[in-house]
Design a protein around this nucleic acid. Structure first.
Length: 463
RNA sequence: GGCUGAGUGGCAGAGUGGUUAUGCAGCGGCCUGCAAAGCCGUGUACAGCGGUUCGAUUCCGCUCUCAGCCUCCA
């Protein structure tokens, strides 16, 4: 059995995973800022780290998975003013929507979902300690800043030197900062903004500090894995390291994992570019499992190009897998399985879900070959297939139900009417009236229903 | 300007110093009353130019192209 290897952004290498505490894993992932619906890029983070978490469980680890929710920031404030809605009502609304998307994508809830607004005490404590240790200072405007020059290893994660970066190239440099790369820990409140009391007056936390506070609070000063999107590498995660290690004096995180972007027409999908699709929108056309399969069909660090063609392919792929599982009662396989071995080998290689999925198809092929002659053997392979699908969060539905429920044709004709048409066709077939039988079949096909004859039995599915 | 990463067959997408990825689509066959599903077979793929090597798509160098970060962003 190969050991689990994970690509660590910090070292830019795959490293054998060694937990800090035997048999346990602490995982922290940067979650959503809740002022809008989740888009497919967010879905990728959710699904990717859901699989990471499921796979650790599959391997028998006791995992603690923490994903924060940013429920206070500039955009939230802007939205709440715009919508004339209290910011807590706004954020609660989108937290609920996010949870709805997760359910649709079969994403399991993290063990903890801390809120920034419920972590203010810890945030203040950490800022205090940073000021005491002279890693932070109060600027002329009353905001508290982190001093990047006070931290020797600043730039270790993103592989950049302070001198190499073009500060102020695209954004005006804040005159209150000693170094242009210093960042806000505590922001003083403007009139009518939500705020909390602190030693530096009424205000709210900066973006980066909340994650340091929540992560160390939930998982300890030093934990195993921290994840998030590629774009968070700099400055967000770089700043988290600087803050946390300066404040605690301990190493912060062993392994950093970053997932690649979803792209549209070879461009990053993002809010600022406006080229995004919300999970909600895509769910009108595709099932959650189809979106999930699409996300897992490429490696998590690769770019993922969004298109209908790709989603359609994911649909066909799932149909093939479910078709193999149809009408089979899996029997637990007591023998060691080469499929499982290769599946684990793929997953142990930095969670290579694309490669792992190819093993699922080999199982499907094997089942189809065995099903007539050796049904018992086929049932065992089916069990293997489901065993592998579980940590991927796939194939959890009943095969026949999945195949009978394709979404857009659901309302065109009822199951009852399908059955009526089928019995008419059966009668036609028995009297060898092929013209009528084919006519009925063609008609159903127009309504999105495909008939499949096998021997005397006829099954149906929706296209 | 600095720093990352990527360029694979019609499409998508893994991987490897010499041997079948996988899925979708195509073609031929089997099965079928005919289909569908399934099975079998089938594709001179690895951006370009040099180098290392008995041998490179895989290692090294250069070139070209693309994407990302250096502002908020998953």
């Amino acid at each position: 059995m190969t050991a689990l290897k994970i690509f660590n952004t910090l070292t830019r290498q795959k490293e054998t995973f060694r937990p800090i505490e035997e048999g346990k894993v602490g995982l922290y992932v940067c979650g959503m800022t809740v002022y809008d619906f989740c888009h497919i890029g967010h879905a990728r983070v959710m699904v990717v780290f859901d699989v990471v978490s499921r796979y650790f469980k599959y391997l028998g680890y006791d995992i603690k998975y923490v994903r924060n929710i940013t429920d206070i920031d500039d955009k939230i404030i802007a939205r709440s003013i715009e919508a004339n809605e209290d910011f807590t009502a706004l954020t609660q609304r989108f937290i609920d929507e996010m949870h709805r998307d997760e359910v649709a994508l079969n994403v399991q809830r993290p063990d903890l979902e801390p809120l920034a607004t419920e972590s203010i005490n810890n945030i203040i404590k950490m800022i205090k300690s940073l000021i005491e240790k002279q890693h932070a200072y109060v600027g002329p405007n009353g905001d508290v800043y982190y001093s990047v020059e006070s931290f020797d290893n600043y730039g270790q994660l993103s592989g950049r030197q302070l001198d190499d970066m073009n500060a102020g190239e695209r954004v005006e440099v804040d005159v209150n900062k000693r170094n242009p790369f210093d960042f806000v820990l505590w922001k003083s409140a403007k009139p009518n903004e939500p705020s909390w009391t602190s030693p530096w007056g009424e205000g709210r936390p900066g973006w980066h500090i909340e994650c340091s506070a929540m992560a160390t609070c939930c998982l300890g000063n030093h934990f195993d894995i921290h994840g998030g999107g590629m774009d968070l590498q700099f400055p967000h995660h770089e700043n988290e390291i600087a803050q946390s290690e300066a404040a605690t004096g301990e190493r912060y995180v062993n392994t950093w994992m970053h997932n690649g972007f979803v792209r549209i027409d070879d461009e990053k999908m993002s809010k600022s570019l406006g080229n995004f699709f919300t999970v909600r929108d895509v769910l009108k056309q595709y099932r959650g499992e189809e979106i999930r399969f699409f996300v897992l069909s490429s490696h998590y660090r690769s770019p993922l190009n969004y298109s209908n063609e790709q989603l359609n392919e994911s649909r066909s792929a799932l149909e093939r897998l479910y078709t193999a599982l149809r009408n089979i009662e899996p029997i637990e396989n007591d023998q060691s399985s080469d499929y499982i071995r290769r599946f684990e080998e793929a997953m142990n290689d930095d969670f290579n879900s694309a490669k792992a999925i190819s093993v699922l198809f080999e199982c499907a092929n094997e089942i189809n070959k065995l099903r007539a002659a050796e049904p018992k053997q086929a049932a065992k392979v089916a069990s293997d297939l489901l065993t592998m699908a579980q940590p991927l969060g796939l194939l959890g539905q009943n095969a026949d139900e999945f195949l009978k429920s394709a979404m857009w044709s659901n309302d065109s004709i009822s199951n009852k009417d399908i059955n009526i048409a089928m019995s008419k066709r059966l009668a036609a077939k028995e009297s060898k009236d092929w013209v009528l039988a084919d006519q009925i079949r063609d008609q159903l096909k127009e309504q999105g229903v495909i008939l499949e004859d096998s021997g005397k039995e006829t099954t149906w599915r929706r296209a």
